[in-house]
Nucleic acid binder design. Structure first.
Lengths: 201, 201, 201, 201
DNA sequence: TATGAATGAGGATTCATTCAT
DNA sequence: AATGAATGAATCCTCATTCAT
C-alpha cells in the first residue's frame, strides 16, 4: 500500500531529478558523482539516498521520464493531416525540444552512445513498433503521391539527428557560428531540407 | 635529447591507442579504467603508464589524432569542382567514416556532448576558421547559381549530424531497422536529401 | 518521577524485544540493523528509539532477561533430592529450553563467543558464585557416595554444551540427521550419558 | 594459466588470513571491518584488497581452510582399531584443537550459529556423507558388542559440543573456573564420560 | 506517542598513480 | 622495457541516531 508522496517528498524528488539531469547530462553516468548531485540539489548525500535508492535509480528515473517525453511528439503526427505539414511540425517540435531541453537530449545521447544498456528493451520494443506503424503512414502518403518516395526510417533518423545535433553538439555548433543564434538558422535550414525532400515536383 | 622511438615503442603506443579507443568510445572517459585498457591492450597497467604519462594523456592523444582525421575530408573539397558532386562526395566520405570508424565517432561525440573540455580551443580556432573559409566557397557557388541558397554552416551541421548518427546512435538505428543494413538506405537517403536541397530548379 | 508504564508501552516494549531477539540471534549484534528490528516489530525506527535509548539498549535488555531465565533452572536443583534424578531433570530442562527457545540460546552463544563484553561481570560474579555453591552440593553427593566422583564444574559444562548444541548448531545437526527429529535422540543420548557417568557401580 | 604465487604473495596472504582469523573470530563477519584486519595485518586496506578480492573472499578462504582441518580427525578413526580407544583419541584430538586453535573454533561456531549461509552445502554434502559412513562403523562396533548401543550421530554431537565448548565459551568457562586450567579437568572429565558411556558392562 | 525527514560517521571497494626491482 | 606490489583519494552506500512536527 504505497502512500501518496507528500508535498515535501514530491518537491525533493523533483529537486533531485533536476540536479541529476544537470549533472548526468554533462558528465555521463559514470562521470557523475552523488556528491555533485547532492551539491547541485542543495541536499546532503544521504538525504539524496533517502529519496532514491541509489545513483542508478536516479538515472533510471530520469531516463524513463525522458523516453516518454521523447516519444510523445511522434504520436501527434496525424495520418489524416497534410503530410508535409505534419512532418515539418514534428521536426520543429523536435528542434524546439533541443532548444528548451538540451540536457535531456544529451542525457539520452550519452545513454545510446554507450550502448543503451538501460533502454535497449524500450528501443527494440516500443520504439521499434511505433516506428513500424509510422512507416506505414509514410508509405501510405507516398503511395498516394502526397510526398516523394523516401525511406521512412531514414527520414526520421535524419530529422532526429539534425535536430538533436543542436543540443548534443551545442558546443561545436556555437564554436563554428560564433555569436549567431543557432536555432534561427537551424529552423530555416531544416525546414528547407525537409520541404525540398518531400514535396513532389 | 629525445630518442627516436624504437619499433617496439611505436607498436606498443599504437596498441595502447587502439585499446584506449575501444574502451573510451564505449564507456566514456570517466567510465573507462586503466585496467580495462591494459587488459584490452594485453599490457600491464604500469607499462601503459610507461608509454603514456596518464590516463588523460591517452585520451588526449586519441582526440588529437581523431580531430586531424575528422577534418581531413573538408580540405579535400575542391572549390573548382562540381559543387553538388563535391558536397555529395564529402557527405559520402563522412558516412563511410561512420561505417568504418564508429568508435572514433563516438569518442568525438562523447567529448563534445560533455562540453568539449579538451578540444574547445581547436573548435573555436582551427575548426571555426576552416568553416569560415568553407562558407566562402559555398557562398561563391551560391552566388554563381550553381547551388540553391543555403546557410553554409547549417548545411555542414546537417551533413555531420546525419552521417555521424549512424555511428553514434547505432544501437537505436539497428533497434528500429531490425536486420536491414543501415548504411545502404542511409547513403541513398542522404544523397537524395542533399541533391534535392542543393540542385537548383 | 517515573510514570508507570501504560499497557501500550508494555506491549510495544515486548514487541521490540521479541523482534530484537529474532534479529540479533540470527545476525549478531553488529550484523543486525535497527531497520530490520523495526520492520520485524512493525514499528517505525524512531518509535523503536522512543522505547529504547539505542540499539545497544535493546540488546542489553535482551541479555539481562536472558541471563535470568538461563540461570533459573540451576536454582531449582534440590540438594535434598535424588542426585541423579536432580541432575537429569536439570539437563532435560536445559534441552527443552534449546528446543523451545533456540533464538535465546544463540543470542547468548553469540555474546560469549565474542568475548562476553557486556556480561563478563555477571559471569564472574553471579554465575561464578552460583556455580561455587552448586559445586558444594555436588561434592556433598559425591562424598556420600550417591554419585560417582566427577568434577562439578566440568559436569555442568558438558550439560550446557551438549544441550545448547541443539539450538546453537541446529543447522549442522539437521544437516547431519536429515529428517530425523534431533531432540528425540538427543534426550535419550544425553540421559544415557549422564546416567552412566553418575550412577555408582 | 595461474602464476605460482611468489614468496611475498604467499607471505602476505598468510598474514592477511591470520589477521582475518583473529578479527572475524572475535567480532563475526559483519562486526569485523577491513580496517581492523588491515591494521592487524600491518598492511594498508587497499593492499589487503590487492590480495583478496573482498572482505568476503578473506572470510570464505578462512572457512574453506578451516573446514578441511576440522574434518581431518574424523578420517583418522580406524574401523579396525580398538573402538573405545579410537573414539577417545578422536575426542582428545578435538579438545586439543580447541586448546590450540580456539579462534578457528569460534569462527566456525559463528558461521553455524548465524545459519551457516556460506557452508550449508558442505554440511549437507560432505559432512552428512562422512557422518553416514562413520555411523556405519559405529553400528558395526555396537553389533559386535565392542561398545554399548549409542546413537552414532548424537555421540559425535556430544563430542563436538563438549570439546568445542572450551574454545567457544572460553570466557564463561574461565569465569566459572577462576584460575584453574580448563583443559586439564576437561580432558579427564570428557574421557570419563565417553569411557563410561561406551564401555560395555 | 509516533513518524517522515535528515545526517555524520563510517565502511567496502575502486582506481589512477607511484614505488621498487 | 616491464611488472608485482602498494596506496591515497575518492565514491557509493549503510546505519544509528537526531530533528521537527
Amino acid at each position: 500500500m504505497e502512500k501518496t508522496p507528500s508535498r515535501i517528498q514530491k518537491k525533493n524528488q523533483a529537486t533531485i531529478l533536476a540536479a541529476g539531469l544537470e549533472v548526468f547530462s554533462q558528465y555521463g553516468f559514470r562521470g557523475s558523482t552523488l556528491d555533485q548531485i547532492a551539491e547541485t540539489a542543495g541536499l546532503s548525500k544521504p538525504n539524496i539516498l533517502y529519496y532514491f535508492a541509489s545513483k542508478d535509480a536516479i538515472y533510471v528515473a530520469l531516463l524513463s521520464r525522458l523516453l516518454a517525453d521523447w516519444m510523445k511528439p511522434v504520436y501527434e503526427i496525424n495520418p489524416a493531416g497534410d503530410p508535409v505539414a505534419e512532418i515539418l511540425t514534428y521536426a520543429k517540435q523536435k528542434l524546439e525540444m533541443s532548444r528548451l531541453y538540451p540536457a535531456e537530449s544529451r542525457l539520452f545521447a550519452n545513454e545510446i552512445i554507450q550502448g543503451a544498456p538501460r533502454i535497449m528493451d524500450v528501443l527494440s520494443g516500443e520504439l521499434h513498433d511505433t516506428m513500424q506503424s509510422l512507416a506505414k503512414v509514410i508509405e501510405g502518403w507516398i503511395a498516394k503521391g502526397d510526398i516523394r518516395p523516401v525511406h521512412p526510417h531514414h527520414l526520421f533518423f535524419s530529422i532526429w539527428s539534425m535536430t538533436q545535433h543542436y543540443a548534443d553538439f551545442d558546443k561545436q555548433v556555437r564554436a563554428v557560428l560564433g555569436d549567431e543564434d543557432p536555432f534561427v538558422g537551424a529552423e530555416a535550414h531544416i525546414e528547407d531540407m525537409i520541404r525540398r525532400l518531400l514535396t513532389p515536383d
